[in-house]
């Protein structure tokens, strides 16, 4: 089984990548993540919150047609920098893994 700390790191990277594509509200992030990878959904929101706390995301409210306004998460400049850092580390890591295990990065 994959080390939970390692998996958490990957999920964090994916959360940043998902929000970098477009601004999203909490449920949307969880839903997008769950559709793509086997993720323990209840860990996504705490990660979103921490990343906001660390300045990688900022939030804003947008009114909806029904009910209360929605809180959207938007990636910040620091967030984009972090994502590029992650992407670089990830590619390097994967190419190393492929060298050992065989295969290649698409």
């Amino acid at each position: 089984m994959m080390n939970s700390q390692f998996k958490k790191g990957i999920i964090e990277m994916c959360v940043i990548a998902v929000v970098a594509q477009k601004d999203m509200y909490g449920f949307e992030v969880i839903d997008t993540m769950a559709k793509a990878i086997d993720v323990n959904e209840n860990t996504v929101y705490p990660i979103l919150r921490r990343l906001t706390d660390q300045g990688y995301f900022e939030t804003y409210l947008e009114s909806t047609s029904q009910g209360a306004p929605r809180k959207y998460f938007k990636i910040t400049k620091t967030g984009i920098k972090k994502m590029e850092e992650y992407r670089h580390e990830w590619t390097e890591f994967l190419s190393g893994v492929y060298k050992i295990m065989g295969g290649q990065i698409e």
Partner: peptide, 10 residues
């Protein structure tokens, strides 16, 4: 509030 909103979205 966030959990309430996510619950409503669901």
């Amino acid at each position: 509030n966030d959990y309430a909103a996510m619950y409503d979205d669901g």
